[in-house]
């Protein structure tokens, strides 16, 4: 499948070691939300939680421009802020009369559903909530729909997760994230006992066939679960073998290093397989969230657009006992 267009709303990346007041106050990287006026109708915007807003913000500019045969989202948490707001109401009003908006907005499929409503689109519509593989599963889903349905020729696929006080708290307690008062600019190389949290929304317009405007394709998606370290390197080699590529055919390697000491040796191993490739640590620009590989693919798309020769870009990520490899290819012009 071919990437025709990509859109991203993400965190503000500081230019220096000074991370700014927003980080100091929140201990995580937050997106600076755009002014949605003119993008999202205000009568709908008023009900949306952050995740849905972010998702709409990146999706609507695309979805209004192209025909869409499928809407597939990946989100680990959906609107968790709304979810806990509703939960707080339940407890604070002792299961009394409660406002339903938070409840309706908290379901992870609220974004995909809202996109369908706004564009009056009755097409295939799915939402994946498999933690750190939610976005990868959404891509695999689309690949299956392309194979199975002749009438599905294009789709919008998204990766959206918000950080709210509540899921930040919970994921700090489970040890995924860590709260730091100050972190260095290159914090992804640190050996912390958790990752620095971020959030973001990325949306892609993908087509089954190349239509000459784009020759950048997602060539392979490989997902792993509960793998040992040696199995992960084997998986990388297998993927290359399957596509008749050698390590030197990979010009760009982008990994999900996130400053968490538990993952450093896995990333060391995978990065060491590609000594000649340009190395990128995508989370230094988007921080850690469970659908951050959406941002990695966005970056790959930007980078590959500038290439004139055939190039390969490999993304490797691991988090929460899950691993993924996404291979993106630019065909020569």
């Amino acid at each position: 499948m071919y990437i025709q267009e990509a859109n991203h709303i993400g965190i503000h990346v500081p230019d220096s070691d000074d991370l700014g007041n927003i980080f100091l106050e929140n201990k995580c990287f937050l997106v600076q939300e755009p002014d949605y006026t003119g993008i999202i109708p205000s009568n709908i915007l008023r009900r949306m939680g952050k995740a849905v807003r972010l998702g709409m913000g990146v999706a609507l500019p695309i979805i209004q421009k192209y025909p869409v045969d499928a809407i597939i989202m990946g989100t680990a948490n959906g609107g968790l802020e709304d979810c806990i707001k509703f939960l707080n109401q339940i407890v604070e009003f002792e299961e009394g009369v409660l406002t339903p908006t938070n409840f309706v907005q908290s379901t992870p499929n609220a974004l995909a559903g809202q996109l369908a409503i706004l564009t009056q689109n009755h097409c295939y519509n799915n939402t994946h909530t498999n933690n750190a593989l939610s976005f990868e599963n959404a891509l695999i889903d689309l690949k299956l729909q392309f194979e199975d349905h002749e009438n599905i020729q294009n789709a919008i696929v998204g990766a959206v997760d918000e950080i709210s006080t509540y899921n930040f708290t919970i994921d700090c307690l489970t040890g995924i994230f860590i709260k730091k008062d100050q972190v260095a600019k290159n914090w992804v190389l640190e050996n912390y006992k958790g990752a620095i949290a971020g959030e973001g929304a990325t949306m892609f317009y993908l087509t089954k066939h190349s239509n000459n405007t784009s020759t950048i394709k997602i060539k392979a998606i490989s997902v792993g679960l509960l793998l040992d370290e040696h199995e992960i390197s084997e998986n990388v080699k297998e993927l290359l073998l399957k596509h008749q590529l050698s390590v030197n055919d990979i010009q760009f390697i982008s990994t999900g290093r996130n400053g968490d000491e538990r993952y450093q040796s896995i990333y060391d191993q995978v990065e060491a397989l590609f000594p000649n490739a340009a190395l990128n640590h995508f989370k230094s620009k988007c921080a850690e969230y469970k659908t951050a590989t959406g941002f990695a693919v966005y970056e790959a798309f930007q980078t590959l657009q500038k290439q004139t020769k055939t190039s390969h870009y490999l993304i490797f990520n691991t988090l929460n006992q899950r691993q993924s490899l996404i291979l993106i290819e630019k065909e020569s012009n």
Binding site: N43, R47, V97, T99, P100, T101, V104
Partner: peptide
Amino acid sequence: LGLDSIDSVELIVMLDREYGIK
């Protein structure tokens, strides 16, 4: 105003919480 059925439930909650009207 473009209000719908969910808004009517929200208003019922408002009347309960702010005015004690059930």
